[in-house]
């Protein structure tokens, strides 16, 4: 086994991992952070999305040992003290979530977008979320939610 040190949602962790352990397995099985989901395990669906040093990645195909010393943010980590993130509020109020399984990945992909581009167009939102699949909503309410959050964050 190999020792991996990483920071998750601001907290330092040291865990033992194997050569083929993924970041998703570290988060879910070792740290019991369950908002990133096991959807496909092949990088296709986006339910396992997390931010790695602020950059959107698929935790299911991220080798755990490659994140040595890095900082991971999951959906649990974007809740600001005492308040939810404007994206979380917007997804809730605009019905951007139905079954909820894709929601953690959707919100993190949206956050990666708004961090880089606070005033995205509808097409830019679609492009930013193009790797995150949802089978319930048809995406319209999700895109509405991201645009609503962008508006709120600007005001």
């Amino acid at each position: 086994m190999h020792t991996l040190e990483l920071t998750v949602n601001g907290q330092g962790h040291k865990v033992e991992v194997g050569l083929k352990t993924t970041l998703l397995e570290v988060l879910r099985d070792k740290l019991h952070i369950t908002s990133p989901k096991v959807g496909c395990n092949t990088g296709d669906c986006g339910t396992c999305s997390v931010l790695l040093d602020g950059v959107l990645v698929r935790s299911c195909i991220t080798n755990a040992l490659s994140v040595q010393g890095k900082s991971v943010t999951t959906l649990e980590g974007i809740i600001e003290p005492g308040d939810i993130h404007p994206l979380q509020k917007a997804f809730h109020e605009n019905y951007g979530s139905q079954c909820g399984f894709c929601t953690p990945g959707m919100i993190l992909a949206s956050k990666a977008l708004l961090d880089a581009n606070p005033s995205p167009t509808r097409d830019e939102v679609k492009e930013a979320l193009s790797g995150n699949l949802c089978r319930c909503t048809g995406y319209v309410k999700i895109i509405d939610s991201v645009l609503a959050a962008a508006d709120e964050m600007k005001s």
Binding site: L19, K20, T22, N41, T42, G43, R58, C60, I61, T62, N63, L65, S66
Partner: peptide, 26 residues
């Protein structure tokens, strides 16, 4: 050899092979 892992780790997860030695280029 491992860089981004977007091909290698898919193959690992699909159990197409079991890595013995990984050389990370990051």
């Amino acid at each position: 050899v491992l860089a981004g892992g977007t091909d290698l780790m898919v193959a690992v997860n699909k159990r197409m092979f079991k890595p013995q030695v990984i050389i990370y280029l990051g």
